[in-house]
Structure formats: C-alpha cells, structure tokens
Design a protein around this nucleic acid. Sequence first.
DNA 1: ACCTGAACACCGTTCAAGT
DNA 2: ACCTGAACACCGTTCAAGT
Lengths: 216, 216
Amino acid sequence: MSEAEQAPNRSYHHGDLRNALIQAGREILTEEGSAGLDLRKVARRAGVSHTAPYRHFADKQALLAAIAEDGFRELTEQMRARLEASPPLIEHQLISLGVAYVRFALERPAHMREIFSGLMIERAAYPDLYAASKVAFALIMTTIVAAQERGEIVEAHPTDLVVTVWAMIHGVAMLLLEQQIPGYTDDEAAELLVQQTIQALYTGIRSRTTPRKAGV
Amino acid sequence: MSEAEQAPNRSYHHGDLRNALIQAGREILTEEGSAGLDLRKVARRAGVSHTAPYRHFADKQALLAAIAEDGFRELTEQMRARLEASPPLIEHQLISLGVAYVRFALERPAHMREIFSGLMIERAAYPDLYAASKVAFALIMTTIVAAQERGEIVEAHPTDLVVTVWAMIHGVAMLLLEQQIPGYTDDEAAELLVQQTIQALYTGIRSRTTPRKAGV
DNA sequence: ACCTGAACACCGTTCAAGT
DNA sequence: ACCTGAACACCGTTCAAGT
C-alpha cells in the first residue's frame, strides 16, 4: 500500500506502467464505455506519451485483453465472496453466484462486455485471459459437485450442469445489461429476477399436474 | 427482383441508398467483424462518396442501429420458420427456438453482438430496433401461452417464463459465440447443448430422490 | 432532393532518437 | 531498459458547392 517504499526512483520511469495502464483503462471503461477507450487517452491518464504503452502491450487489443483479464478476476472474486457468505444449500448458492454476476454486469456494463468479447479474438493469443475464465468455471464446478454429494442436485455430468447454470446466469446478466428486459432497471428487481430464474431451473418449468393428452 | 423496372433513372441518384448501405454493412460485418465496419468502407461498397450516408443516417451509430434491426428481423424469421416445422410439444418447440437462435449466433457472430449491444444506447433513440426486439419476444410469448393452455408448462406468469426461457437460450448462444464453452465448436455439438440445457430447464436440476438431510 | 470534395480533429501504429 | 516526438495512413463528421 505504501507508495514511497515500492518505487525505486521516479525520474522518467514509471515504476509499474503496465499496471497503471490497465487501471487507467478500467476507469475510462467505467466512466465512458468502450467507445471512449482509446490508447492515447489511456496513456494520457497514466501520464505518459501516447507511444509508451507499446513498451508493455503489442497493440491496443493486447491492452484490452489485459483489462478484460483484470475484470474477470474481480468478477470471480465477487462470486467467491458472496458464495462464502451463503448458506450451504445449492439453491441459495446458485442465487448468490447469480446475484454477484448480475451486479457486476450492471455496475460495469462496458467492462462486462469487454470480458466476454475478448476471448473470441484467438484464445491462444491471450492465455492469461483464458486462464482467468477457467478459474470462474472451476468455482461453479466445485459448488455443483459438492451439492451432488449432498444429494441436492441430479446426478448428471458436472460439466454439463456447470454449463447449464452458467448459461442461465449469463443470459440473465446480458439481457439485463443490454436493457432487453422491460421493467428491470434497478438492482433490487434484478436480484428478484435471478431468484426467479434459478428457482425455475432448479425445479423445472414442466407442469406438475398430469398433462392432458392431445385435444384442446 | 428486376433491376430495370424499379429505378427511375440512375444518373447519380442511387434509388435506395439507405437499404444498400444496410446491406453493405451487413456484408462487411459478416466478412470482417465489427472492427472492420467503418462508415467510409460501407459507402465505398455501396458505390457512393463517404459523405453520402449522412443523407440517410444521422451518424455511424444510427446506421449500426439499422443494421442491428435488420438482423433482429432475420433472427426472428428463422425462429419462426423452425418453430412452424416443429411438433407442437413445448420441449420440441423450445429446442427449435434455441437451435435457430444459436445457429444465427454462430453463423453471424458480429451481427449477433451488434443486435444486442445496439439497444443499450438509448432505447428511445432507436424505436424501430426496440420494436424488432418486441416481435421476437412476442413469438416466444405465444409459444409459452399455448403450452400453458395445453397443460405442458407450469402456470406461472407468462412474461416471467418468457424471460427465463429467453435468458437460457441467450446465455447458451452468447457463451458459444464467445467460445467460452470448451469443446463446442461445430454446429452439431451446439445443437446437443441446446437440447441439454432446455431439457434441464424443463425438468429441473433438483435431485429426484429424497435429499438426505444434513451430514455427509 | 441527393451527392461530392476539401477540410478538421483525432486515432492506431511505426520509427528514429533521447536518457 | 524505458520513454518521447514527428510522421503516416485512416476514420467520423462538417460544410460549402454542384446537379
């Protein structure tokens, strides 16, 4: 935390420019969205010339990937925090994961989009970003497997269940984020929506009464 | 279809430049992705000067919204087509909707992203795009309500069910699109994933055996 | 009414040069 | 090793002008 201890000298070297650029980018993304995120502006905010970033990133895309990776870690951390504060029943746990996910998406929409459109661009080119996504995946996996061991969840292949749960949460977050769901603007409504969708996935939407056979 | 009949004269007027620009944009989006979609290139492809688009669109954003709207209509059309070819059982119908959705996303990833990131930007500014999204919503709604009448689906509020189903399908499509799900690259695997997730939502992921009470 | 060409401010990237 | 400044090609947008 102390500034004086770390920096060797601050002549014209920055100390940790790479990280300063990621943080500056993060801020711009949060304040102005992805349209406002240009390399020259990031450099300006970090207090260096507009060519300095090229010492640390091959190009703009590489900086974006680093910012996405940073966001993915933060998202995972918030999921983990809510999960730990949750009672050990799978319904509550899934809702906790979902609420953390949706809150992050609504608090930092541009960052959320960047996180998930960064992977498309040749996964092999950004292995660290890919690694960050696997940590999030593993977190859900652990939760699912433990619930199976407690007998709370169906005995399907865990990977399939993780994908299903993740897709549900991701879909809710993204539709909310893009304001596709009318009437859900505030956080409270968003949490109710998470509860409702997780509940639907948990118990199913199939009719519980015997379905009448053909014929209206 | 005939070119000669429609055009009054082709001196220097284009005839239907607005539509030509949307189509040109669509093509570029499909071929090069959103990074390659600049206004001057769109104009070049449509065969006009780089300032001509401003006769029909206030700015680049407005053209993007029009392209997104065009894509939304196409997506809805493909959903409707598959739905009509589906047996009238809700499970098959939801899978049909999902498959159409996912196929579109994988065939035209950049277009799909554009469709859903276009709404964020002030809904009021692009009412036509918003209207296109409501048509898709209505299609799912009709399907759900009919299934409720047949007694195949739980008697919840239809709007809630539509959101739940849509979120599930959207999540699957977007995670596949961004290559977040390892091992699902080809269309066939993607269809299996849709089946699996819809099935999970339909019947639920809760354990069918009596869950053991606390204690491993 | 519809389109063009010059002009402006700005961006990503490169490269020779500075400490 | 790390950063700067000039330079280049390109983009979005405006505006006076042409038919």
